[in-house]
Design a protein around this nucleic acid. Structure first.
Lengths: 338, 338
DNA sequence: CTGAAAGCGCTTACAG
DNA sequence: CTGAAAGCGCTTACAG
């Protein structure tokens, strides 16, 4: 990708008959340049097809205009809307978005963040709290701003734009208990290196503990894939101590669980209720439609972008933002026995 | 996002007792530096926590190590796996990915591409052929390599990594006809500014034209949203000339159509068959599971990355790559009458 | 409102 | 294998 030689600011200066300083000003602070001069310059720029060289600009100004989002995966709608919202707000401010995925691997996350920093990322959107020590040290050493999303914490040194996974799972489970369920199972995400998955388990457990007579009969961890969710559901349904409700760590798991239940002739919600987490498209398409926790993807993405933009503009005293993640009631949850 | 002052190559040179040229070589072409020197340098780099300044490097070498993907939307799983695959291959080569979305608007696409070029994008992954003239002119003028995906064409000047939407839709429709369907409707994507949506309609029409007695009773265009697909299905089902099969321009539309049909008491596939396009997660979760055209997302994403990487490495005579998009048979398609 | 000039931090022929 | 030095294309005090 060798570039053909492009016109430089010197070419424009020569053609317009002014200094390069004035060209630079005309581009970056137009109102500090006389209208007549500006017009000449614009004409010259147009004629030459000039666009400023990125590297030169960068080196001189020490700003890249670029932030990065590092997410576990793009293939799951779990993060898509959030990243989309993040990008839209950034684009509105003329800031570009670099993106990388980690496959839920902290070492890969470290590598990606380091590479992105070396390539000009001035700020980061990160998912969750679980992170390699080295990553935190790197970010701190270089004093790079970042916003932690998809979770919430009270650490005043950290900037969050997220929600409380434990509370969301707790509240959802409370509603399940309220409907009368006492034997509950969980299909959780893989909890290692994943605080969101862990917090959801904790929340479910905590809610069950508040209800005398209620029991968590089983917790199975599964990757966020349809096949894994289906298999977990089958294991749960074939156990002797069959639950009346299954809480799931994600919609992918929950949707797959519903499908597998149907294949096994188990009716949802009459025989078993299923609750998801995310509220992505899947939730409304499965039969019965999924009762699920709505993750505030758009809110988080927008807030993260605004926070980063504000930091960039030099604002201080920025505050973390916490959003609600309510349970959306649909057909997959009903009192035990239907 | 003002950076605190970081160590420069001069600091490293001083500490290691060598010239900056040698530092640069140790980093970029390690085997042209004596082992002993390299060790000294590595130690100095480590001590200082040095990482090369992006702007300086860029200006001197004129390479950004960054390519961009400009897609209609990230919120739909339609493109997610393809972009994920694209990013993974790039990351393996140490190349970073900028990403932007256009909302299916050619003007927005132009703006995003221009902004990305100004921010160092050395190559592009683009979706489909429909594009503003100005965009093409811009790309050409700056001689920026790009790969066109999610479609295919025979233009030898263009680099494609995609599939033939018309052929895929044609083949799928042929199979529907083979099952005995003669009255067919279509829920298409919005075709303006979208060659993929248009080609799918053309393919469906062409296949129907090959079958005596077969008719396309209705074509409704809908945005790729669940609600729009559901409403389109309702309109189709309430028409007097009700089809026995509905071809859809995407899985989102098809899944929503199935759900709405069920709500209206219309059985799929007994009363009406439904065929999708994409094969995203939704397809396997809806009841009945969706018969759908599998879009080779991963193949396209990987191929696009490899093509761009090859161009970058100076390879010439690169060839477009065309993949298959086969119909995946599941429960939503059956002969008329079930 | 405008210009001359220094400087940002690298890379890379060129020479040895 | 290593170094001295030019140069990449901008921005930005400083001066007027």
């Amino acid at each position: 990708m060798q570039r053909v030689s492009q016109p430089t600011i010197d070419d424009v200066a020569r053609l317009a008959g002014v200094s390069t300083a004035t060209i630079s000003r005309a581009i970056n602070m137009p109102d500090r340049v006389a209208k007549a001069t500006r017009d000449k310059i614009e004409k010259a720029i147009e004629t030459l097809g000039y666009t400023p060289n990125y590297g030169g600009r960068l080196l001189a100004s020490n700003r890249t205009n670029t932030v990065a989002a590092v997410i576990p995966t793009m293939s799951n709608a779990m993060f898509a809307s959030g990243v989309q919202a993040f990008q839209e707000v950034l684009a509105g401010a003329g800031v570009n978005l670099l993106i990388a995925s980690t496959g839920y691997d902290p070492d890969e996350e470290f590598r990606q963040i380091r590479a992105l920093m070396a390539n000009g990322a001035e700020g980061f959107l990160l998912i969750g709290k679980d992170r390699a020590e080295t990553t935190l040290a790197l970010l701190k050493k270089r004093d790079i701003p970042y916003v932690t999303t998809w979770c919430f914490g009270n650490d005043p040194d950290q900037l969050y734009a997220g929600f409380d996974n434990e509370k969301a799972a707790f509240d959802a489970t409370r509603q399940v208990l309220l409907q009368g369920h006492r034997r509950i199972a969980m299909i959780a995400g893989i909890t290692i290196h994943n605080d969101r998955a862990r917090d959801r388990v904790t929340g479910v457990m905590a809610a069950i503990a508040t209800q005398p007579g209620a029991r968590l009969v089983q917790v199975i961890e599964a990757r966020y894939r349809l096949e894994a969710g289906a298999d977990a559901m089958e294991a749960i349904l074939s156990s002797v101590d069959r639950p009346t409700a299954v809480m799931c760590g994600s919609d992918v798991l929950a949707a797959a669980a519903i499908v597998r239940a149907a294949e096994l002739g188990v009716r949802v919600p009459q025989d078993v209720s299923v609750v998801g987490f995310d509220d992505i498209g899947l939730a409304r398409v499965v039969t019965p439609a999924l009762t699920t926790v709505r993750v505030p993807q758009t809110d988080m993405g927008q807030a993260a972008a605004r926070l980063l933009l504000a930091r960039r503009a030099g604002e201080v005293g920025l505050k973390s933002q916490r959003f609600e993640a309510p349970l959306i009631l649909r057909g997959s949850l009903a009192p035990p026995g239907g």
